[in-house]
Amino acid sequence: MTPDAALIRYVTRLGDNSLILGQRMIELVAASPELEEELANANFALDYIGQARMLYTYAGEREGRGRGEDDFAFLRPEHEYRNLLLVEQPNGHFGDSTVRAVLFESFYVLLLDALTRCGDEGLAGIAARAVKEVRYHLKHSSQWLVRLGDGTEESHARTQQSLNDLWRYTGEMFASDDIDKIMRDEFDGPDLNVVAEQWRKAVAAIVSAATLELPEDGWMASGGKDGRHTEHFGFLLADLQYMQRTYPGATW
């Protein structure tokens, strides 16, 4: 794989994470427990969709084959999406969504921070913009984790269960593949071992503030980065792509 091809795939993958998590959060619109939380969730979802737009547009430019953001978002089959399995997991209850957000955002904020210093100017610029948004998202989600974990007996037990259930999707974030390696060697990209170490510390601190227990590292799910998804993904994609597939090129 040429460095350029790897960069394009790397950027697309980042876009996929943002788009899919944004789509999951949009499913929660009109379902938040409080009006203020409703606004926050919708704002964050749109932040992620905005990041996906920037990343896809940039990937399309670098690719130079005339693909735009919509082609990436709406017209690819399931196996061409290379997002982490974690972000496609269903919203579940509020504790599940909160844990998913904390686990992903505490990783993503470190990754973006490293990418602001990478050798590709375009990607570094997008990362600089996105990292500010995600820093705030993480603040929000980790405050919620503390409230739920250190809340009532029931919220504590359910949030611990969410953490145990979703933990198996965290290994994939740090499993470096060819694209990650080229990104690191050719573009001064993030070292996933370093990110993993920082992430563990950060998550341990939040989890302990929430009076929860870090789960044991057991079997870890993987496949998202290669386009092999969990069974939930097809339904998400059907929802996301329905309009463009049914009315190709529709605008309003």
Partner: peptide, 10 residues
Amino acid sequence: EMALTNARDT
């Protein structure tokens, strides 16, 4: 803390 973040988001 939540009041501050809610105010920011609203």
